[in-house]
Each structure stands twice: as structure tokens, then as C-alpha cells.
Design a binder for these strands. Sequence first.
DNA 1: CTTGACCCTCACGTGGCGTGAGGCGTCACG
DNA 2: CGTGACGCCTCACGCCACGTGAGGGTCAAG
Lengths: 253, 253
Amino acid sequence: MTTWTVGQVAELFDVTVRTLHHYDEIGLLVPSERSRAGYRLYTDEDLTRLQQVVVYRRLELPLDEIATLLRGGEDAADHLRRQRATVMTRLDELHELVSAIDRALEREMNDQPATPEDLKELFGDGFTDEYEQEAQERWGETDAWKQSRSRTKRYTKADWEQVKQEADAVNVAFVAALRSGEPATSAAAMDAAEEHRRHIHDRFYDLDHTFHRGLADMYVADPRFTKTYEDIAPGLAAYVRDAIHANADRHGD
Amino acid sequence: MTTWTVGQVAELFDVTVRTLHHYDEIGLLVPSERSRAGYRLYTDEDLTRLQQVVVYRRLELPLDEIATLLRGGEDAADHLRRQRATVMTRLDELHELVSAIDRALEREMNDQPATPEDLKELFGDGFTDEYEQEAQERWGETDAWKQSRSRTKRYTKADWEQVKQEADAVNVAFVAALRSGEPATSAAAMDAAEEHRRHIHDRFYDLDHTFHRGLADMYVADPRFTKTYEDIAPGLAAYVRDAIHANADRHGD
DNA sequence: CTTGACCCTCACGTGGCGTGAGGCGTCACG
DNA sequence: CGTGACGCCTCACGCCACGTGAGGGTCAAG
């Protein structure tokens, strides 16, 4: 038996039958033979070609580029280099994405009242906790998370209460500036913004002014967090955001 | 002017008009008003909602999840955590991809163009061995399997030899306990079980005592695995299973 | 001769829009 | 009051790499 049917080939290479049909349709891998009944029959050579296709697919080359590559015209090294650059770019994007999500999550955490149950749910209380395991696996690599976790892990109830007090103090400063009629670009408002940044910086993870801007925008973008500020004082959310941006400007970031 | 047309909104938020049409079509963002001529007119509230959509889109959340989120009530943190896990998985894959490309490039530069055999060696997979195929069928895309793959991928020949030696040592311990006539609940048998668990835990994937029980049951239930043990010594499969359960009991899981 | 596993060819669905086609609305200028 | 440029509308197909049936033929075993 020197030929194989779709099902056999599919199992061998861990692809679906539909995929082989697709490759046939677009001419990327047309089986050399057909049985009288019309069954696709793959030869050794077909399998070799499929092997190459499968490998290049794992590099996420589009199928038409793979076709070009296998037509033999192009230099494989060039393709690989280009692909590497593409992957690296994508990696950077994903890294940014992760930290953006981190910031969004951090914002979630900050806005939740720090009841012991919440903390347990957020940080877990043992290695048997599924979330804890996943968090360690998945989040273990980002600096923000490592920092935040290593710091908050040891926070007691009292610590959390103090964290909350600090947060409240920051809010009070914001409200005072707002009520006094000073603009968000005033020194008082910017000072409150800087306090806000330092609070997060000290308590959770390193936070520079650029990231701080991102957080500020989130506060206004999402009504759940807008509400937190609007409940304290109307117009506070936008005021806080503007103050943070002004403060970032002041620091030249 | 308290409403905006598609074009204005598009420019404001740096999205295309088609995108706004799309969001309208799928009901994610339906403009509150229409002009007599049927022009879409976006209000302040619409823009606020769009702002949120845009933010979440930057986090690459699927549109239907964003819809769920904005419908309110749902926990944003859950969605964000899931999204984070997804992105991290993708990051891992791309890291592997980059090193695979590097290895391919190295081969390409130093030696001749890569033959299919080279590729097979470099990227693995392709003509997978039977164990790997069956394991994939069994475990599919479970975390354990992914973890095992990501670890073993980087094992060298020497590593594998050591892994084999460790596995043999565990088996020897089991056989010794069995031959000496000690019950599966004896300390010797349970110690061997614990060694077995740690071996897998260290070498392949996180394995607690509860999951270890599941493995043990499978050793007896699945003839392929049963055979492995029965070939070493008759009655060993069941003995191993009982020892593992006893060991799990001992550890209170 | 039946059964059941395998194979075939359509052909529509997926996500998140891009990209026209064909036609109406609006506005500044002449 | 007409005209041209531009913006808006609604279809509706295209993209990529297949997934997922529907409806029907083929093949080896019992």
C-alpha cells in the first residue's frame, strides 16, 4: 500500500479531512491519484509536500505564500526572516495588550471594596485554588502582576483598610479641588492626581505618567467606574481624568 | 449641534464608517436617532457607548462579549481574565514559533536548505509518534496536555534518558513492594505512588492527588496502559492504582 | 445482502469588517 | 435656481482558512 486516503492522511498529520479538501480546492496540495470511485489517493511525494505545508502553517504563513515557497522560486531564508519579523511585531503588540488588560483589571480591583471574600477570590488562599494556579501560570511573567501580587499577597485586613483610606484621601483631595472651583489644571488638582498615581505606584505596581493617562481614560470610558466618581461628586470623573492628564503634562510625559 | 453623523463620528474615534454600519447591523451600537433622510445621528450617549466599545476592542475582546459587557450586570473582570489567558497562551505559542524559526534559519544559513526530515526534527510534529497522537485524542486541548507539551518540547535526548530512568526507578519501587508481599496500602507502596506523582508533576504537568486518582483509574480501565504494567509484572496495574488511591487518602485529598 | 465506516461534492456559516455599485441628500457657489 | 462635489444610504459580495452539515455513493466485513 503506497497510497493513502484522506482519512488516513488526516490522522497521520493531525489535520482535518476538510483541510485536505481545502488544500486540494485551492491547488496547494492536489493528490497525485484518484481511485475509480473518485477517492483522493496521496502518494509519498504528496505526504512530503503536506509535511512542508503543515510546518509552514505552524509559522502562520498564509497559504498562498506557502504555495509560492513550495513552487521553489523564493528563498526559504527570506521567507523565514520576514515571518520572524512579523511574529516579533505581533509579540510586541500582544505584550502591550496584556499590560492594557492588566491595567483594566487593576482598575476593577481598585474599585471593588476590599472585603476579605473579594480578596480571597482575587488572590486565592492556597495552591489548590484553580484561579491561583492559572494566575501563576498565565500572569507570572508580567512585571505589573508580579509586583501587585507580591505586594498585596501579604496585605492583612488592616492593610487593606489603610489602602482604602489612602484611596479615600486621594478622592477627598480631588473633591476639595473640584468644590473650590479650581480647574483640573490647577496645582491642587494636579497634586491630587500625583497622589493618586503614587498611591497605585506604592501599593500595587510601578505606574508612570503615561500609563496613568491610560487609567484616567478608563475611568471616564466605562460607566461602572465613572459611577464610582460620579457618586462622590457630579463631574468628578472627568475632572479626575483631566487632572491626571494635566499632571502627566506637567511631568513632561 | 448635539448629534453627529457617521463620518464625523468615524473621524473622531478613528474608526471607519463601515465599522459603524457594522456595529449598527449587529445591534452593538444603534444610533439613537435618524434624520428624515435616514442619516444615522449619534448622540452624546451613543458616543459614550462607542468609546467603551473602542476601548474593549483595543483589548481585542470579541464584539459579542463586548455586547454582553455593555448590557450591564456582567462581571468585566471575568471577561478580562479570560482574555488575558487567551492572549498569554498565544504569546507562548509565538515564543515557541520564534525559536522554531530561529532554528530553521540557523539550519538554513549553515547547512543546505532544509529537507523535510530537517523540518520534522526542528519543528517536531508531522509524523508524530503514536503515543503523542493518542494522548492528543485523549487530552485534547486540556491545560495539562498543553503544559506537558510545552515542557517536553525543550527536552534534549539526555533529558529524555533521565526521564526514562526516573520512570524506571518508580516502577522498580512498585515492583519491589509488590514482590515483597506488602499491601498496596503499605508505606512502601504509597511512597512509590508519591514518587510516581512527583515524577509526572515535575516532568510533565502539575498533578495533585485528586487528579492522580483519575490517572490511576485509567491505568486499569484502559487496556493500553494496563498492558504496560502487566508486562512488567502480573497484577501490577491494579496494585499501582490501589497504591495511588491509598497515597491520596494519606494526603487527605 | 446488509451494515456501518468511509468517501464524494455542493454549499452555507464564521468574524469583522473592506470594497465597490447604484442612488439619494445637502451645501456652497455661481 | 441650477450644479457639482461630497456625504450619506442600502444592498451585497469578498476575504481567510477552514467548520459543519446535507445528500448520496463506495467498500470491506459478517
